[in-house]
Amino acid sequence: MKPEFFDRLFNYFSWGCSILLVGAVLTIVGFLIANGYQSLNLHLIFDDTRPLDAIFLKSQVFDGLFPAIAGTLFLITLSIIVAIPLGLATGIFLAEYCPPKIKGSFSLLFDILAGIPSIVVGLFGFCVTIFLHHYFYTRLFPCLLISALSLAFLVLPYIIRTTQISLETLPLSVRLTAPSLGATKLQNIFYVLLPSSLSGILSGIILSIGRCAEDTAVIMLTGAVATAGIPKSVFSSFEALPFYIYYISSQYSDNSELMKGYGACLILLFICISLFVFAHWIKKRLSQKILYRP
């Protein structure tokens, strides 16, 4: 058989796979839209409260998704704020400062951490909370802060490993340029190495944002509840979209509630897409700012 035959075969095969996957994504999104679009309106989010009153916390929303949306946004922001500096610093350490002897075992540990199921991380966060509650601070209960810290723990390995790998795969010529011009190691890292690996690092962060937005197992053990309103502080329990979706889909009493669940799915999808777009925009602005500032 001619090699061209295999060439063509492989070409068809990869086309087939891609079309299958794109089809699957379109089916899911189409299914959600078909089921959720009727319930998708301001009433779903704000119930009978006036939207501006709700946003400025003048009056509370009881039967709408607004508290869950706010809870999810708080949760993502808080987790990412904790995870980014820790993850970047650790990734930089592994790629640039770690002695080769211990690098292997550290990397292995972070890979294991990445493989821990989220329910286990949730359980761990829960146990730590109980421990702290008993021995240190009896007013501590599962809350937004605990959830955010547990989620940060869950996504840290992604940020660490993507940072490390994008730094390590930079070609030697890029690595040597700044030192040859008199840069210290730190200057090299901040002026050249990090900006050059920005897109790899950002893909890790985007993955983490997605993970924080969708994860249910961690938050349901560490502070998410069905009704809580807007969290008053990081020590309050909170509502979150994925938890709401889980809750509705397992306990809905009538069809209109189920429809609200579909609406919540669409909103969660929309939030994720917006965050991705936002992250890409930041990436563009950041590289412009770092590299082209006159």
């Binding site: 700044a178 040859s180 011009l181 008199g182 200057q187 002026y191 900006p195 082209y292 500032r293």
Partner: peptide
């Protein structure tokens, strides 16, 4: 390295503007 300059075998402009490339050693 500021007194002993080096020009590499393969040109290695940094991913920056032309001006910033030349001004980079001064910035460092």
């Amino acid at each position: 390295r500021r007194q002993v300059g080096m020009v590499f075998q393969v040109p290695n402009p940094l991913p920056m503007s032309i001006y910033n490339n030349i001004a980079f050693p001064l910035k460092l």
